[in-house]
């Protein structure tokens, strides 16, 4: 599913990046170490962290899109970093748990969705 489509379905907003990026699975976590280990290509990273370091992890692990929770908007430097490395940024108004649940439903059961935290 395309990231823009997914964002619309879960009531989130695409704030940065190309909405056509294809998302096959998702994973969530609030610890960088967990994110590093769970990252996989074509996955959406869902987190409570904001900061530029999440972008760095996405870049290193080739994760194409990040979803921030609780309506926390990434700051300008974070958006600039996302533009630089072609990542899509999504902001969900819901909390981490609720966001994961909505995305889980959208991507369909049977898909590999790794919940965290």
């Amino acid at each position: 599913m395309q990231v823009a489509q997914l964002a619309a379905r879960i009531g989130a907003e695409l704030v940065e990046g190309d909405g056509r990026i294809e998302i096959g699975s998702a994973f969530a976590g609030d610890r960088i170490s967990d994110l590093l280990n769970r990252a996989s290509d074509g996955a959406l990273l869902i987190t409570n962290l904001t900061g530029e370091q999440v972008l760095r992890v996405a870049e290193l692990m080739e994760v194409p899109a990040i979803c921030f929770c609780e309506g926390r908007c990434p700051d300008e430097s974070c958006c600039a970093a996302a533009r630089r490395c072609d990542k899509a940024l999504v902001v969900s108004p819901a909390g981490l748990f609720e966001t994961c649940g909505r995305i889980h439903a959208c991507l369909g059961l049977g898909k590999e969705v790794i919940g965290g935290v």
């Binding site: 900061g51 370091q53 999440v54």
Partner: peptide, 8 residues
């Protein structure tokens, strides 16, 4: 920031 979780 998500670091220092004793996982490094």
């Amino acid at each position: 920031m998500g670091f220092g979780a004793g996982m490094g």
